[in-house]
Design a protein around this nucleic acid. Structure first.
Lengths: 145, 145
DNA sequence: GATACCTGTAATCATTGACATTACATCAAA
DNA sequence: TTTGATGTAATGTCAATGATTACAGGTATC
């Protein structure tokens, strides 16, 4: 039984940004090229390119092609990437059961008792994501090459 | 576009434990009763009952029926509940794209660069979950009634 | 020991998200 | 105008969630 993970769009997006920076002086970074490095379909890449662009993290050239970070890598946090691609409807990490029984004292109160705590958990995770940037990734990459 | 949340089994399980404690002196807490308070099918409840039991968090009486916490509520953390019901295959919160291209310097290194960071994020979340217990929930419930 | 009430669990089914893939409209530079 | 690229709609497959029916297996009580 597998399950319930944050989608691979997130790690793919980080991979994409890393490639954009790593190859920026060497070649035009197209969706085809990214797809080859990541090993997924180019259309998947293009959809994520759109999301990253919409979030203001990258610039994509139409016609001529090619994508690149839109700001200094120190200013692109994992949280920025996470929010750009992980389209969580109401922005809550936890899915709450929808219709607890209002005639039961527990059912009537469970939501307000849990909401604050669930938010704290989510914020702990987001705080951690916010402390990591694409610059850190590039630094590690240079060490590994 | 909805998406990618931790399943409602978690909040349902917390709700179940809360009911077990809240009604323990008043009535037998059966899967039917829990299903009515939570407003889901009794079979869903029974499956989660099994998971909580397997994790050693509750005791369930066969035949006669009824479920109750197996240990003091201070010792049942949100993390215990999370791990009991959220059956994540390899225990990683993030889903990594599987086959980065080993012939690309980025594809070859991305996994080792990200793994540690993703683990840190997961641990931040789990640390927060570990700091919350069912006793806290009961305290809040009493305040709300 | 028959009955009545529960739990445990298998088997379906509908719905939804992820991801792959094909197809094509659109764009911009050479 | 030709040539790459991007943008995106449309499908298809697969897996997980959650609802539901059905029934086998316990256990207390009459």
């Amino acid at each position: 039984m597998e399950a319930m993970q944050i989608s691979s769009r997130f790690t793919i997006a980080i991979h994409m940004l890393t490639c954009m920076e790593a190859f920026k002086d060497e070649r035009k970074v197209t969706s085809e090229f990214l797809a080859a490095s990541i090993n997924v379909n180019p259309v998947v890449i293009r959809r994520i390119l759109s999301q990253l662009k919409e979030a203001g993290l990258i610039e994509v050239k139409r016609g001529t092609g090619g994508a690149a970070p839109a700001k200094p890598l120190e200013e692109i946090t994992f949280l920025d990437v996470y929010r750009a691609v992980e389209c969580i409807g109401d922005n809550t990490l936890f899915h709450f059961h929808e219709n607890p029984n209002p005639d039961c004292p527990v059912g009537r109160n469970i939501h307000k008792i849990l909401d604050g705590r669930l938010l704290k958990v989510q914020q702990a995770m987001e705080r951690e994501l916010q402390g990591m940037t694409m610059a850190d990734v590039m630094a590690d990459l240079k060490k590994n090459i």
